[in-house]
Amino acid sequence: MSAVTTADPPASAAAGARRRRRRGRWNPPLISGLVLFGLIVACALCAPLLTSQDPIKQNLAQAFLAPGAPGHPLGTDSFGRDVLARMLYGARTDLQVGVLAVVSPFLIGSLIGLVAGWFGGWIDAVIGRVVDVVIAFPFLVLVIALVFAIGPGTTSIYVAITLVGWVAYCRIVRGQMLVAKEQEYAMAARASGLPTWRILLRHLLPNVVLQAVIFSMSDIVLTLLAIVTLGFLGLGVPPPTPDWGTMIQEGQQFILTKWYMSTIPGLAVVITGLALALIADGIVERANQ
């Protein structure tokens, strides 16, 4: 084989290219997003270390304290519970619900989208109709029905959000799949005789799932907001468990006089959303490096 011409040396500007890649892998949005999100998670985990107050204990004598009151840095709510403690312990509830309520729709939706996009034909048609029905079905009616069926609590929130949320992932992955399966690398995998499940999971999934991962970041925030909405209807996280959504809802009654009661948990939701959006940006940049 000595006659074979040697190829051009890879990356004549190798140093420059490597520099660019390194900077793409750990890019500023990704780092800042991860740091910010890490801080929020750390606050939730270390709640008992950061405050000695009990988030549930009521003290009506000390109700409606403004932020900065002695012993209550963020004040107290209408029942006299410490707002800081409720914020910290609320983060535990919300992150848990937010993340868990996104994981199963993500997994189920992506898988169904993968199958629909790959096989097409009647399978795709059937899945498409189911998706249409779910989208057309009012979310809140579904939740109310479920709460009656399962009983109130976080479980029914998970189930309800999963039943509705998978649709978005299914659509995203299916769309990506329609493009990816026509790419020549998918053809090449088929031409080399690999079994279908292997082509789907090993070759196509990693290429189509990126958009779904990015969407899941904003979906976590959307889920938090959905919980707030449910709280309004009394279907959210049952009291007295601390949760940002309930806090926003409670503070909303006093918005004109005690603006900070809704604003502080609202800010927490915004910061969490920002951290997740930064992570999503970072993932995009990393993938496009």
């Binding site: 011409t5 040697t6 190829a7 051009d8 004549s12 500007a13 420059g16």
Partner: peptide, 21 residues
């Protein structure tokens, strides 16, 4: 006849004849 290699990366300054390599 083949031309081995590839054109220089023009983000870096070119020293010498650009075709020399």
């Amino acid at each position: 006849l083949t031309i081995d290699g590839r054109p220089p990366d023009l983000t870096d300054p070119v020293t010498g004849c650009s075709f020399a390599p």
